[in-house]
Structures are given as C-alpha cells and as structure tokens.
Computed example of a mutant assay.
Amino acid sequence: MKLRDLGEFGLIERIKQVVASDSPDVLIGIDDDAAVVRVGRSTLVVTTDAFVEGVHFRFDYFSPFELGWRLMAANLSDLAAMGARPLFAVVDLAVPADADAEEVTDLYYGMREIGARFGVRIVGGDTTSSPGRWFLAVTLLGAADGGRYALRSRARVGDVIAVTGWLGSSRAGLELLTAGGGRHRAEPVLEAHLRPVPRVWEGRFLVQRAGVRAMIDVSDGLSSEVNHLCRLSGVGAVIEAARLPIRPVVRELALSSGHDPFDYALHGGEDFELLFTIPPEKWADLSKRWTRHFEIPLTAIGRIVRPERGIVLLTEQGERELLPGGWQHFRSNTDAPDACELRPGERP
C-alpha cells in the first residue's frame, strides 16, 4: 500500500504495532502530544517535530530567525498540551553546502529566543549536508512536575470543551503571506503564523491548578483535534460554531479572499492553542480565575456527549457531522471534508 493511500495516521498505527513497549517505565507512548517516561523518581515528557522546506515552510516569506522560532514553538506546544515544564532541546539540521552560515546562525537565534522564554536550553544535536532543501528537527525534553500531566484520552461525558486564545489566525496569516500581502498589514495574524507563542504557562496552569481532564494542542486544525480527543477518550462531541473565537481581522481577511472564516477556524491548523475538557462544575471557577492570570481569552465551545451521538458541529440550521479537515501528510490536502463547512450565506 502506498503512503498516499494509507495516510499519516494510518502509518502511525502501523508504526505503533512495531514499536509498542511493555516497559513499566513507558507511561505514555505513541498517541499523544508527547511521550511520558519514568526515569528514576522523575517523570519526563519527550516530543519531537521535523520541518521540511517546501512542505512546512518557504523562504520567500520565512526568515531563518522566524523559522527557528516556529520550529521550537511547535515542540513547546506539544509540551504545553501535556502541562509539562520545558527543560532541554537537541536540534538536527540538514542544509545544502551553499547555505549562508549567517542564515544557520539566525535560525538558532530564533530557537533560542522563544525557547528562553520558557526555560529551554539547547544542549546539542547533529548537523549534516543536504542535497537540496533544508531539513530541521527538534527533540524537546520536559518534566511533569508532581507526576501530573494531561492526556488526550481522559474526556468524560458532560465535560465542557474549551479552547485558549483565537482560532484561524495562523491560516489567515499564511494566506496573506502567500498572496504577497505586506507585513505591515494585519500584524496579529502574521505574528500568529511566523512567531506563534505556545501556551506553555497556560497548559501548566490548567494541569496543576484547574483540574482539566483531557487536552491537546491545535496544530492540525480544530476539527482534527476534536476527532483525535474523542476517538482516544471513547466519546462524542457537540461543537457550537457561533462560539468559535475568531478575530475580526481573520473574518475580514477570509471573506475578502473568498473563504469562509469558519473554515479557517475549524481546519486551518497551526494555531498552537490548547483544546481541553473540564468537568462542568469546575468551569465557572476556572473562567473567573483565568482573567487574573492570563490576557488571552478562554472560550467554551461545546460539550462532550455519548459516543453514539457522534462528533457534530451545531449551527442555527441544525447539526452536521464534524469530520477531520486539517492537514495530513502523504495525502492531498486540497479537498478537505465539507460535512462541517457552512454553506454560502449560512450563519452559525
């Protein structure tokens, strides 16, 4: 079977069968935002992300500094989804021999700057030559303080589904950049794509002090993340389109380019926000305390329901199945499922 037929997630399922471990020190393996392992008395969290030129980025709108920033941010977001405290990183780098040394240095400056915000130290890695395109990978190690960490698989029927920050901003920023829009326009969405800020402190707060049940970062798109979380938790979900937090500038940019802003919010991906569930009796208290600690919004967007209800998007016109429509490697990503998209003129 070709990978284009199997898809990214089908491949992951095959890999799981090969590398599954019964070691008591492997607390969480494949299937979450990061692995969790026990080393002596410590509980460590490990994640890795790779970026390939032409797949994840293009240098016509990414500077090396911004690329380094974004690569480190993607890894930090995985640890944020576990509620972990970031510690150390190693970096693998493959670049053409004719690349400028200054570009590589700037790449590391970008990784260092965003990493330092959260206490990360880059302690090593590997460098090698590439026959053409740049290839980058970061492996990040963190700690689950007190042995506490979030998982995708703990959602329960009745839980409130909530999300941090804004949805669709990164997709709007990408559309603006690829269309040749200047960097003076719509600065928040450009920053969301080029220099995203992972929700590390927010994730630690939610795990250590708020009692969240399940959590995942929004990297592949909200529709995909909701499906991942529900599949692993064995539940269904109702998402209310009218509650999705979308910046006014994202709505404006989407509509001006002939796109649906709700498509950006549901399928855009790479927002690096946190999607989580929490018992309803804890939601009101969390909402009040949140504003005392963080400036970004926190929004309840739905609820967890019984699995037979399915995973649905609720609009004024009724409900429809919410299929995963975000990015998936190896497959064509041009034909996202439209079962959850709003039709022209339809309002949430």
Rank of each mutant, 00 (worst) to 15 (best):
Ser42Lys: 15
Arg195Met: 13
Glu270Leu: 11
Glu273Trp: 01
Ala150Glu: 01
His293Arg: 14
Val157Thr: 13
Phe9Cys: 06
Pro245Ile: 05
Gly234Ile: 10
Gly68Phe: 02
Arg331Cys: 10
Val160Leu: 00
Leu229Ile: 03
Met82Val: 13
Ala214Ile: 00
Arg343Val: 02
Ser77His: 09
Gly182Thr: 14
Ser63Thr: 15
His267Arg: 15
Val305Pro: 04
Ser223Thr: 14
Gln328Val: 12
Gly132Pro: 09
Pro245Gln: 01
Leu3Phe: 09
Cys340Asn: 14
Arg38Pro: 00
Ile28Lys: 09
Gly124Cys: 08
Val160Trp: 02
Arg14Leu: 15
Arg133Gly: 13
Leu253Ala: 05
Glu346Thr: 08
Gln328Thr: 13
Ile114Thr: 13
Ala34Gln: 05
Leu76Cys: 10
Val238Cys: 11
Ala172Met: 06
Arg243Pro: 03
Val160Gly: 03
Asp220Asn: 15
Phe262Asp: 13
Lys282Glu: 11
Gly165Glu: 00
Ser42Thr: 00
Val18Thr: 03
Gly221Met: 08
Pro279Lys: 04
Asp159Gln: 04
Arg289Gln: 14
Val104Glu: 01
Leu3Pro: 02
Ala94Pro: 07
Val226Trp: 04
Ser130Trp: 08
Asp159Ile: 03
Ala172Gln: 02
Ala34Met: 05
Val197Gly: 04
Arg85Val: 02
Leu136Asn: 07
Ala97Leu: 13
His293Gln: 13
Ala99Tyr: 06
Gly54Asp: 12
Gly119Met: 04
Arg58Met: 10
Leu190Phe: 05
Arg309Lys: 13
Ile301Cys: 05
Gly40Ala: 13
Pro188Ala: 12
Gln17Arg: 14
Val250Tyr: 09
Ser21Asn: 03
Leu93Tyr: 02
Pro96Cys: 11
Val189Ser: 13
Val19Ala: 08
Ser21Asp: 00
Thr47Arg: 06
Glu66Gly: 07
Tyr149Val: 07
Ile122Gly: 11
Leu6Tyr: 06
His259Leu: 14
Ser256Lys: 14
Asp100Ile: 01
Glu175His: 15
Leu229Glu: 09
Ala186Asp: 08
Pro198Phe: 02
Phe262Glu: 13
Glu270Arg: 14
Gly29Ala: 10
Arg204Trp: 07
His56Cys: 08
Glu66Cys: 06
Arg289Pro: 03
Leu298Arg: 01
Glu191Val: 14
Val207Thr: 08
Ser219Leu: 06
Ile246Tyr: 03
Pro261Ala: 09
Pro198His: 04
Gly110Arg: 10
